[in-house]
Nucleic acid binder design. Structure first.
Lengths: 132, 132
DNA sequence: CTACATGCAAATGCTTTGCAACCTA
DNA sequence: TAGGTTGCAAAGCATTTGCATGTAG
């Protein structure tokens, strides 16, 4: 199936809209809950399938961060993230991609490097406040 | 429960031994399969519980890499990894930890940074060969 | 019309957990 | 002998999938 075979269904369009407007990095279930307000009969499976398709089309990005569920990013461009170790909230890390990193490894590994992922962990403001 | 309350059972000892000898970064199930050869009656649940305990004790490290199952590292010290996107094999990345990275973010984020994770993705030699 | 997409429910895969029996310190 | 630990099985949870029906192009 080629890209042109994709159909812009109500569901796909709504999911994309919701993600673009959310501006955070929600999980499939969070997206499902919001989309359900507009399309009450949508199923979670459809949400997963469409997020997958949209990422194949390069319109969004799937974030598979360490030790947490999948999150989805309206911005398909490479960038880094910070994850709150308490509430799992994810935000962008305000630091430019380090493109030379992969070259640094070129001579010292037998792997053929194709990319890298940098993820910061920390406490978001809300969780810092509520520390018991 | 304090560290001194921990008991060094046959199971715990064997799991630690196997991991130290493996020198790779196996999954719980891979460890289970090897340990079973020495302790045929051990259960997968016990393997998970002990790996968790050993990491609490700082004797090993749990790796929660993006989009893959948990892996366990006999070396509790911070270091980076490369993951094969085809077979999921994980090896160490021969590059020194960048300790200043977190400071770079200090002024530009509202998060209280506590750490970071850098993960390279690529093709291991075996998978590079077998590319169809 | 055709074949991609959906809703539903069941299945999957990894990991965790409740519990009674067991064993280490 | 106290209480941490085990084996077993069941539960948990995010995600995927099979299938009959629906619908975009």
């Amino acid at each position: 199936m080629t890209q042109s075979d994709r159909r812009m269904t109500q569901q796909r369009k709504t999911i994309l809209d919701v993600l673009k407007k959310t501006k955070t990095h929600p999980s499939a279930d969070e997206i499902y809950e919001i989309v359900k307000q507009k399309l009450p009969r949508i199923s979670l499976g459809t949400v997963y399938r469409n997020l997958e398709v949209l990422s194949e089309l390069g319109m969004i990005q799937v974030l598979e961060l360490s030790g947490s569920l999948k999150r989805f990013d309206w911005d398909p461009n490479k960038h880094y993230h910070i994850r709150c170790i308490r509430c799992d909230r994810v935000e962008n890390a305000p630091i430019a991609p380090m493109r030379q990193l992969e070259n640094d490894l070129y001579e010292s590994t037998v792997f053929e490097i194709v990319g890298h992922n940098l993820e910061f962990t920390g406490l978001c403001p809300r969780c810092t406040e509520n520390m018991s």
